[in-house]
């Protein structure tokens, strides 16, 4: 398998885990010190540090999943991710990867909306026998979130 194919597999697996509701698998796509951030394009372009959601470690991602399973209150819904093809470059011990995405949100009454579009800016490394995100930055095209954001993108 080429690196590109392996990264495409990682993207597909990541989307499957979230879209199938297997959110407990989500932190496992990151290295232990992995970073995950959702930020608007406006703030990203302005170099501002605060976005919409930030996890500075796999443990913080686990807390997010436990919070959304047991503490947070919202109407049931699911996502459908359409990840785009990656463009990659080698950097240090890993890869810098950019790709587009589109996420639909499906509400329990069937209402389906384009919830988010944007790009993933990733740093991907070999971690043991797998490729994992050292960082995944989700840059949203829009500054607006419809209703709320609780499931990761």
């Amino acid at each position: 398998m080429t690196v590109r194919e392996a990264i495409e597999d990682l993207f597909a697996d990541y989307a499957e885990a979230i879209d199938d509701g297997a959110l407990e698998r989500w932190p496992g796509f990151f290295t232990e010190d992995g970073e995950y951030q959702i930020i608007t394009r406006e703030s990203h372009d302005a170099g501002l540090p605060i976005g919409i959601l930030y996890c500075g470690s796999r443990a913080m991602m686990e807390d997010r999943v436990r919070a959304l399973r047991t503490a947070n209150i919202y109407e049931p819904h699911s996502y459908r991710h359409l990840p785009g093809p990656p463009r990659l470059a080698v950097q240090g011990d890993g890869f810098v990867v950019r790709s587009n995405f589109c996420v639909f949100r499906i509400a329990q009454d069937g209402d389906t909306v384009t919830f988010a579009t944007g790009r993933y800016l990733d740093r991907i490394v070999r971690d043991g026998d797998a490729l994992r995100f050292r960082s995944r930055r989700v840059v949203l095209d829009s500054r607006r979130i419809d209703t709320l954001l609780v499931l990761p993108l």
């Binding site: 959601l53 919202y74 979130i145 954001l149």
Partner: peptide
């Protein structure tokens, strides 16, 4: 301090651990 403010921004906003419910409760 900036980093700590970044960390705690997780509490509020559209994805806030203690505020995201307000996105739907008024609806």
């Amino acid at each position: 301090q900036t980093r700590q403010r970044l960390m705690q921004s997780n509490l509020t906003g559209a994805a806030g651990l203690v505020s995201l419910e307000d996105g739907c409760i008024n609806e």
